[in-house]
Design a protein around this nucleic acid. Structure first.
Length: 612
RNA sequence: GCGCCUGUAGCUCAGCUGGAUAGAGCAUCGGACUUCGAAUCCGACGGUCGCCCGUUCGAAUCGGGCCGGGCGCACCA
């Protein structure tokens, strides 16, 4: 340790201490994560879609962030109670039920079952606005729903059940842990609202103002500077969502026994929630150690920096988003992992596509808006899920190979030699895992974990570049394998806390032996190679790519050699008689000894390629 | 009008409970593959941290004031 100017001191860690700490982490089931000092019962309110209404990007953030927090806090040793505050009650159900009756249950169920929630809702809305008779029926229907009419209740239940199944299908695709049992919708609180209002009226806590029963939590002023009311009961006797939220706080504190209430809700709701929390505190319903926090998040923007919408201006359906991300990942996987079965390829594509969406949502400060850009989030470069997944898959590959060679991880020895600095940096970073998880627990900011994992992957790449693992021997190899093992587990565990899968294999490699194709010479083409004629593989055309092509081949590239999409191709090169490992799309252009591009492609995709 | 959030490299973002020369990725340019996964790595270029005051030994970070963007502000949830 040394002093280094005002306010600083430098300290050095002993290499053997570092190695020992890493070994302890590796031998622990929890890696370097300490459980919370004081585990709590935490309610997390997230996702909250509306019955008979489409899930859209707005629900994405709540669902993804909430689920990551649920997983992380659970891992920290807290007891997490998930609460899906589904919109399953209120005046819209009058028109929805009437519409259900009009269309017929069977048809409606089918329509809703396949996810046509948006159309169903819109149709009901339209009739309500246009048809006076329908509107009247709808209003009567609300009354009988509130009154507990059996048939109305049954129809309502149909809507709720069909929607719940649809939500569950989406959760399954997203890999979200929400279950049917976690649903605690607005209807749950309905029977409590009337007594709650009566209680507040009787105690004098709430005051009737302009016909509405209001609470006036401290510290909130409206436009004219007057105290801002929280309406407990509307002048028509009905209830708004403030009342439901108050009832929910009571339920969560008194019946669920929670001491920490988290609301994963968009930032625009900040004032409303602050008022509800303050009111609950003043009423003594939310009392220490119980406390509530608004886990606010910003909007999803399009690449034009405006609210993310479809070209026609509609909100984007969540399923469409997932479909597109998966399809694009699938195109790559189909091409890169041809030996995997269709099922396996689909699974990997799902992991990549869904992981990319979730990671993009989690990796930036949640309170800020973020730009939804599939190109960026599906990239294997940068702070993305595919990059982390790739690092993990690569580590898995090392262990597959190690096993085949009979190499095993052993004791972690203090690093020495050329790559020692890189190895130390990696170990030091690995030991920071617990601190980051604790920070997420405290700040409720999953992006801290994302940043950590990204840096971890980077530190690993640096280590891996500098320290040969399988090429090393004896104790050194065993030690480095142990370092890899810890890295792999930390990556996988970290991704898992975010709700992101980590496939063990992502691509399929061929060994190309040029010598097998007598008469050909491979041309070294740096990193810009073309796979002419091989389906699904294209390279972006840039001025640089044309220049490189020309400088390496001495010829101008043929027209349309480079096309505009498919970001994933890379190069491989060799000369006759040598071989190189590469993915099937890493194709060389042959020299003048081949006459036809198509022929070259055929050779590449067929004859020369043999699985490793 | 009041309140909340936000403004960091051309683009997308970290860093914000004060600490050393403000970091990544993309883009641009230049390097590194006859296989431990190049879907990678290394380097270069690129920033008045919106602006101005203040607190401090020290400010992207804390406080105040402006400017720009977003969102709320009583019976819709």
């Amino acid at each position: 340790m040394e002093l280094a100017g005002p306010g600083f001191f430098n300290l050095w860690l002993r290499a053997d201490w570092l190695a020992g700490a890493a070994a302890r982490a590796l031998s622990s089931e929890r890696l370097a994560v300490e459980p919370a000092a004081a585990p709590e019962r935490v309610v997390i309110d997230y996702s909250s879609p509306n019955v008979a209404k489409e899930m859209h990007v707005g629900h994405l953030r709540s669902t993804v962030i909430g689920d990551a927090l649920a997983r992380t806090l659970e891992h920290r040793g807290h007891t997490v109670v998930r609460q899906n505050h589904v919109g399953d009650w209120g005046t819209p159900f009058g028109m929805l039920i009437e519409h259900l009756v009009d269309v017929g249950e069977a048809t409606a169920t089918e329509e809703l079952g396949v996810g046509e929630l948006g159309a169903f809702y819109k149709a009901a809305r339209q009739k309500f606005d246009a048809d006076e008779g329908f509107a009247a029926r709808s209003r009567r229907r609300v009354v009988s729903l509130q009154g507990g009419d059996a048939e109305t209740r049954r129809l309502w239940r149909v809507l709720v059940d069909v929607s719940a199944r649809y939500f569950e299908a989406i959760y399954a695709r997203l890999g979200v842990t929400l279950q049917r049992d976690d649903v605690a919708g607005e209807s749950l609180y309905d029977p409590r609202l009337t007594p709650l209002a009566a209680e507040l009226r009787a105690s004098g806590a709430a005051i009737v103002t302009e016909g509405a029963l209001c609470l006036f939590p401290q510290g909130f002023a409206g436009k004219d500077g007057a105290p801002l009311p929280l309406i407990v009961q509307k002048s028509d006797g009905g209830f708004g969502y403030a009342t439901t939220d108050l009832a929910a706080i009571r339920y969560r504190v008194d019946e669920l026994g929670a001491t920490r209430l988290l609301y994963v809700v968009g930032a625009p709701q900040a004032q409303h929630l602050a008022m509800v929390f303050e009111a609950a505190r003043e009423l003594g319903w939310l009392r220490p150690p119980a406390r509530a926090a608004h886990v606010a998040f910003g909007s999803v923007l399009g690449t034009d920096k405006r609210m993310f919408k479809t070209r026609s201006g509609d909100t984007v359906r969540l399923v469409d988003l997932i479909d597109e991300a998966e399809a694009r990942a699938r195109a790559v996987v189909d091409d890169k992992a041809r030996d995997l079965s269709p099922e396996e390829r689909a699974a990997v594509a799902r992991a990549i596509g869904v992981g990319a969406i979730k990671y993009a949502d989690l990796s930036s400060d949640r309170v800020k808006d973020y730009v939804f850009d599939l190109d960026r989030m599906l990239s294997f470069d940068g702070n993305t899920a595919p990059y982390l997944q790739y690092a993990h898959a690569r580590l898995c590959s090392i262990f597959r190979k190690a096993e085949a060679e009979g190499a095993a991880a052993g004791a972690i020895a203090p690093a020495s030699g050329e790559g020692a600095a890189k190895e130390r940096a990696l170990l030091l970073h690995l030991l920071g895992f617990g601190a980051v998880v604790a920070a997420v627990d405290e700040t409720l900011e999953p992006h801290r974990l994302c940043t950590y994992l990204y840096e971890l992957a980077g530190a690993f790449m640096g280590f891996y570049e500098a320290c040969p693992v399988l090429k090393a021997e004896g104790d050194v190899r065993a030690s480095r394998l142990a370092v890899c093992a810890l890295t792999r587990r930390t990556l996988r565990q970290g991704l898992s806390l975010l709700g992101i899968e980590a496939p063990e294999r992502m691509l399929y490699l061929f060994r190309i032996t040029a010598g097998q194709a007598a008469g050909f010479t491979w041309v070294f083409t740096h990193s810009m190679i073309v796979a002419s004629g091989v389906p699904g593989v294209k390279m972006p055309e840039t001025p640089a790519s044309r220049r490189r092509w020309k400088s390496s081949s001495g010829m101008m590239p043929p027209p349309n050699t480079f096309t505009s999409s498919a970001p994933f191709a890379r190069s491989a090169s060799t000369t006759a008689g040598k071989s190189v490992l590469c993915a099937p799309d890493m194709i060389e252009r042959p020299t003048a000894s081949t006459s036809s591009w198509t022929a070259a492609a055929a050779i590449i995709s067929g004859v020369w390629c043999s699985p490793v």
